[in-house]
């Protein structure tokens, strides 16, 4: 393994008791200092991969290496420089944040002075310093989440493995975490970030690995993905009347629309793939002219990840 590669998986397979393959031959490499997003819909195998990478579960076959050490065979060597945050972990409610972090500092063999110094630093970073000696049991969910994040960066790891790090955070918290992850880029920290939010990943990552059905289906740089996405216009439309088969066919026949998807009784999603912003206005005009009574019309970007995954699925199907 080249020195620059810090995370590597080789044909990872994880089969659960019911015969379901959560991860099916996943292989990828991540270089030092890279911030890589691991994207896929729920159930794609993101968390399973992350759990294998952090020694929470063993793979059925294949192996996961961190800094050249097999995580499942040599967890002490592989994980000593790794900070991780997986899902929404619980925190020990009977302890104080200082005691909680102190324990993990000792697990990572940090000197006492360093532990004391880092407790102040990271608690300040996640805005929990004034609750340093309060019982964690009295914390809100958001505070617990911030403490878990503080724990993952407490020992100054050079590799961070984060699974849905903004889950359960308020918008301000999400922004703070985003800034924090971006700041790691300057510090040469490698970040492996799993998320089902494409938007989230595109804001902080250098490149993205797409996972679908337990398989890696694509790996692109965020720049390239952005270019692809720019081509897509998704428009959610709500009509006054319910939509029948005839209406759908009428919409599909319109030249300005590439795809029509019925979302509900009177809700539609229209897709245009020419990348031209003018077409959004054109579509609205055509729809109205064809006698549809539009209640709301909203060009969306928030659901792009669903759309992207569906494209990837098509791509996989064509292989």
């Amino acid at each position: 393994m080249a020195d620059s590669i810090v995370i590597k998986t080789e044909g990872l397979v994880k089969e659960f008791g019911d015969g379901v393959r959560a991860v099916d031959g996943v292989s990828f490499e991540i270089e030092r200092g890279e911030i890589v997003g691991y994207l896929g819909p729920n159930g794609a195998g993101k968390t399973t991969t992350i759990k294998i990478l952090t020694n929470l579960i063993k793979p059925t076959s294949g192996r996961a290496l961190i800094n050249g050490f097999d995580v499942n065979r040599h967890p002490k060597d592989a994980l000593k420089d790794v900070g991780s945050l997986i899902g929404v972990p619980g925190v020990y409610s009977y302890l104080t944040p200082a005691e909680f972090l102190n324990y993990f500092g000792r697990v990572y063999r940090m000197p006492k002075e360093k532990i004391d110094q880092r407790i102040e630093e990271v608690l300040k970073m996640v805005d929990l310093l004034k609750w340093k000696d309060s019982k964690i049991g009295t914390f809100s969910t958001g505070m617990e989440r911030r403490l878990a994040i503080a724990r993952s960066i407490f020992h100054d790891p050079s590799i961070l493995i984060l699974d849905e790090p903004v889950l359960g955070l308020d918008p301000e918290g999400i922004k703070e975490i985003r800034e924090l992850i971006k700041s790691f880029q300057k510090e040469d920290v490698t970040v492996f970030l799993s998320s089902h939010l494409l938007d989230e990943v595109s804001r902080v990552c250098d490149s993205v690995i797409f996972l679908y059905g337990g398989k890696v289906i694509e790996r692109d740089s965020v720049k390239k993905i952005d270019e692809i996405l720019k081509q897509y216009r998704l428009i959610d439309v709500e009509l006054l009347n319910s939509i029948n088969e005839h209406d759908l066919n009428k919409l599909k026949d319109m030249e300005v629309i590439d795809q029509v998807q019925k979302l509900g009784e009177n809700r539609l999603r229209l897709t245009k793939t020419d990348g031209d912003p003018v077409s959004t206005a054109e579509i609205l005009r055509e729809v109205v002219e064809n006698g549809f009574k539009v209640v709301s019309y909203s060009p969306e970007r928030s659901n792009l990840e669903d759309f992207y995954v569906s494209l990837m699925k098509e791509k996989e199907g064509s292989r």
Binding site: L79, K80, G87, P89
Partner: peptide, 15 residues
């Protein structure tokens, strides 16, 4: 149950 293991187990220790 409380998912504290998600913090405890991915540490450099033998389980």
């Amino acid at each position: 149950e409380e998912k504290t293991g998600l913090l405890l187990f991915p540490t450099p220790q033998r389980h």
